[in-house]
């Protein structure tokens, strides 16, 4: 597959919610085409019947006891908020 032709940078940047400048689009497209060409080599590997590995040592069904524990105070939790008012985070208006 010709990966370099496939990478529609506008579509991907939109999915990633990332604004790119025209210069970044040109530069990243070319650089990622190189990387994808290198990655193409994986297509040579016979993976018939091979199970995928998501974690080297998977741990399943980890449960925590349903017990209340001390957490961050409101003040600590909001300490790094870019804008806050009355113990809430302020964002641009989301409904008209």
């Amino acid at each position: 597959m010709a990966a370099n032709e496939d990478l529609n940078i506008d579509r991907i940047a939109n999915l990633a919610r990332l604004a790119l400048t025209p210069e970044e689009k040109v530069k990243f497209s070319a650089q990622l085409a190189d990387v994808l060409t290198n990655i193409e080599k994986l297509k040579q590997v016979d993976v018939t019947g091979v199970e995928p590995t998501a974690h080297a040592f998977p741990v399943y069904n980890v449960w925590a006891d349903d017990v209340a524990q001390a957490g961050l105070t409101v003040e600590d939790a909001l300490r790094n908020a870019p804008e806050k008012r009355d113990n809430m985070i302020v964002v641009p208006k989301v409904v008209e």
Partner: peptide
């Protein structure tokens, strides 16, 4: 992304199994 997941991500996870 849709349409590429199997070709890249899933395949990579399978080759990861072989490397392991």
């Amino acid at each position: 992304s849709s349409g590429y997941y199997d070709a890249y991500y899933l395949r990579a996870q399978k080759v990861r199994t072989l490397i392991r």
